[in-house]
């Protein structure tokens, strides 16, 4: 895949003929210095952005340059996102934030209650279900974000520095949660600066200037 960012005077290459494959059930960490193209890659993998050239096969289907509606549809049924800054909606409670993906996928109201409560229990955040994001600690907010990411039982979770805003104890808890999810069959691609977090993955892909420079298989 190739991706460029252009202004009137400058063209920056974000992804330079990058090629990679992630198998179902894998836990892959992507590492590299700032500006190497990690987030761009994650946005394309998450179908939030399109590559300028190349191909992206998701589950065997070509998704590069498909329309917005189709991408939104693929995204909501197959992908969960976990962000460094949690990205919870401040105006919604914990319960409502987690419920949101189910609303977009058209899950019936009675099923939604069951599934949200189930995932909140699993993330041990049920007691905070009626709180707003600002009333929670960083660790709790990230658990809510993970709950929201998994409530739709996605095939793939994309995590963008999920422990970046957390202390080490909360960070470890989040990594344990992701590992559990992976062990239950969910594919995880995680962008991180932390070697410690990367060690939870099966494989580390290292990027530099928009290209893969090294792959480490974790044993």
């Amino acid at each position: 895949m190739e991706k460029y960012y252009r202004t009137e005077e400058v063209e920056t290459i974000a992804l330079n003929k990058l090629s990679m494959e992630v198998k179902e059930g894998e836990f892959v960490a992507i590492m590299g210095p700032s500006g190497c193209g990690k987030s761009t890659l994650l946005n394309i993998l998450g179908m939030l952005d399109d590559p300028d050239a190349g191909s992206y096969l998701f589950n065997g289907t070509e998704v590069a340059n498909v329309g917005e509606r189709k991408r939104a549809d693929l995204r909501k049924h197959n992908i969960g996102f976990v962000f460094q800054s949690f990205n919870l909606i401040d105006e919604l409670t914990v319960y409502e934030n987690v419920e949101l993906p189910l609303i977009y996928t058209g899950v019936a109201s009675s099923d939604r209650v069951k599934r949200v409560e189930e995932v909140l229990e699993k993330m041990q955040i049920m007691h905070r279900r009626n709180h707003y994001p600002q009333q929670l600690s960083g660790g709790q907010q990230q658990r809510v974000a993970i709950a929201r990411a998994v409530v739709n039982k996605p095939k793939l979770i994309l995590a963008d520095e999920p422990t970046g805003n957390l202390d080490s104890s909360n960070g470890n808890e989040v990594m344990e949660l992701l590992t559990d999810l992976n062990e239950q069959g969910t594919t995880i691609i995680m962008v991180t600066h932390s070697e410690h977090d990367a060690r939870y993955s099966h494989r580390i892909i290292r990027l530099l200037d928009g290209q893969t420079v090294m792959e480490n298989i974790m044993i």
Partner: peptide
């Protein structure tokens, strides 16, 4: 966020 979660 909404777009990420699949909102059209």
């Amino acid at each position: 966020i909404r777009k990420t979660l699949g909102s059209s």
